[in-house]
Design a protein around this nucleic acid. Structure first.
Length: 524
DNA sequence: GCGGATCAC
DNA sequence: TATGGTGATCCGC
């Protein structure tokens, strides 16, 4: 027994234990919109009380320790860097920066569109009794999104439902309805096509668009082309409910007139014709209005010369707003300099901590500390950081290329009986094989993923000589990998809460057909 | 090629 | 009572 350790028996009078300041991982995410002015300390206390002692929590503590060790290791490496090396790093960095500088292209209008609290908004639209009440989509296990009222209590996406209920006892949980969200997404995308036929969807509720070509045709467009029916109603004298329909389509107008405004609960009309201007702000505004007309859901948007900046902008005036960065170096510099690095897509909670430890908090700090970053990070990461601090991003909006992998995984009640585990393994093999078959895909690297009852995650892969997709080969390969893991756990049983499978794709029937048809068009 | 980690949604 | 699923990428072997 270590007599130096604090005597915990003396602390039992403390009825409330304090969340450890070291447990950054468990704290409330507040880097996104809708989180202003809440009592963070109180919320974190509730999250901590609800989580502490659980297996999940214990595993998070372990991971937190590992991150701390990584930061220590980073510090040790930093201290070894000499003044001379720093001088060299500075030269390298400045060389790269001037190279990157020449890549700047300010000629494009890149737009990022993001639906506001998408799943929650759909559910509120379809069930008026949910309006003005805190609600979230998901179950006791996990929430996929919450409405803005629930966010005021700290209820967020990726939070388990039971914690959401602790934060907000009146929270209403609504089951997720993916098919419905997909259908709404399809309606939204049908509008996006009018502004950029090559738009790039990121998820059901998010997309990048390149408005550049549209802006050229817009210059010569007639007023009629830019006229849409818009319904205005003032609600609580602030948020405006806009309802619009395309002016040219009179039969549609009559159909829409029968609808009830979801916010003011009055029937349409009255409505008015709104003429949108030829500039980019009005073009994006027009698109958002049309989305709202079609779906009765609001979107936010960011307008910038590249994708990285557009993405940050769309968050700025959320919900139901838009923000534009002017396409000039000074505006970009002013915007990026003060921006916290965590706002950049790709810099998550861990990278933020690692960089903060070096004194890098805002994007301008990436530039200030460029020499240090040159020495501490890989070429790829360093390159990425330098692009960020310049405000440089991709200007080519393109659809995702072909998928590189396909996977399936399930969480279940703790399971240790080997025959149950093999059953689960077979089940997942069937599922993955079916999905591969539907898309005509094959691969040669099979990966088994397991998560133990203590939340420890492991993956075990095997590459086989042939391209495969069939259930038997997937099962036989994974069965062997699983057998080894069960054996390695001996004499203890292997107790799992999740199992998954993944196949790296090497062959796509669809691509093959496309290639053959391209070569022999007569086959069509 | 493998396994762990991180990130986004 | 109770902390997801899918796809991608990077790093260090």
């Amino acid at each position: 027994m270590n007599t130096d350790s604090p005597d915990t028996s003396k602390q039992k009078s403390d009825s409330v234990s304090k969340p450890s300041s070291l447990m950054t991982r468990m704290e409330l995410n507040d880097h996104k919109a809708g989180m202003e002015g809440l009592d963070k300390a109180k919320i974190n206390q509730i999250i901590y009380e609800a989580s502490k002692g659980s297996k999940y929590f214990e595993n998070e503590k372990k991971k937190e320790e590992q991150v701390k060790e990584r930061i220590e290791e980073q510090k040790r490496r930093m201290e070894k860097i000499t003044a001379e090396q720093l001088q060299h790093g500075l030269k390298q960095a400045d060389g790269l920066l001037s190279e990157l500088e020449s890549l700047f292209d300010l000629s494009r209008y890149i737009v990022h569109v993001d639906m506001d609290a998408f799943y929650a908004a759909v559910e509120m639209r379809d069930n008026p009794s949910l309006r003005y009440k805190p609600m979230a989509v998901g179950g006791m296990g996990m929430l996929s999104t919450s409405n803005y009222l629930a966010r005021k209590f700290g209820v967020r996406a990726a939070m388990p439902g039971f914690i959401g209920l602790k934060l907000c006892p009146n929270l209403i949980l609504v089951k997720s309805n993916q098919e419905k969200y997909s259908a709404v997404s399809k309606e939204i995308r049908a509008i996006m096509v009018d502004y950029d036929p090559n738009y790039c969807p990121l998820s059901l509720d998010e997309a990048y668009l390149d408005f550049t070509d549209h802006m050229k045709t817009r210059e010569t467009s007639s007023d009629k082309d830019r006229s849409f029916l818009v319904k205005n109603c003032s609600v609580d004298d602030e948020s405006k409910c806009m309802y619009s329909t395309q002016f040219s389509n009179s039969s549609q107008i009559e159909k829409e007139m029968l609808l009830i405004c979801p916010v003011c609960n009055k029937p349409y009309p009255p409505y008015e014709v709104k003429l949108f201007d030829k500039d980019i702000e009005d073009a994006v505004n027009e698109m958002r209005c049309r989305i709202e007309q079609r779906t009765r859901l609001t979107a936010s948007a960011g307008i910038a010369p590249n994708m990285m900046l557009a993405k940050v902008c769309s968050d700025k005036n959320k919900p139901n707003g838009q923000y534009r960065i002017q396409a000039c170096r000074d505006s970009i510099k002013e915007f990026i300099d003060d921006l916290p690095i965590r706002k950049i897509s790709g810099i998550g909670k861990i990278s933020e901590q690692m960089l903060n430890a070096l004194g890098v908090v805002k994007c301008r700090d990436l530039y200030q500390h460029r020499s240090l970053l040159y020495h501490l990070y890989s070429d790829i990461s360093f390159h990425y950081f330098m692009r960020i601090c310049l405000g440089l991003g991709s200007t080519t909006v393109e659809r995702d290329s072909e998928r590189k992998s396909m996977s399936t995984e399930r969480t279940f009640r703790d399971m240790s009986n080997p025959s149950d585990l093999y059953d689960k393994c077979l089940e997942l093999s069937e599922s993955l094989s079916k999905d591969l078959n539907e898309e005509g895909l094959k691969g040669k690297t099979v990966t088994l993923k397991i998560k133990t009852s203590t939340f420890e995650v492991k993956t075990r892969a095997q590459t086989i000589p042939d391209y495969i997709w069939d259930q038997e080969t997937i099962y036989n390969t994974c069965k062997e990998l699983l057998r080894i893991e069960i054996a390695n756990a001996q004499p203890k049983p292997l107790t799992l809460r999740l199992m998954g499978k993944n196949l790296l794709i090497c062959f796509s029937l669809r691509i093959l057909v496309a290639a053959v048809l391209a070569k022999y068009p007569s086959l069509i």
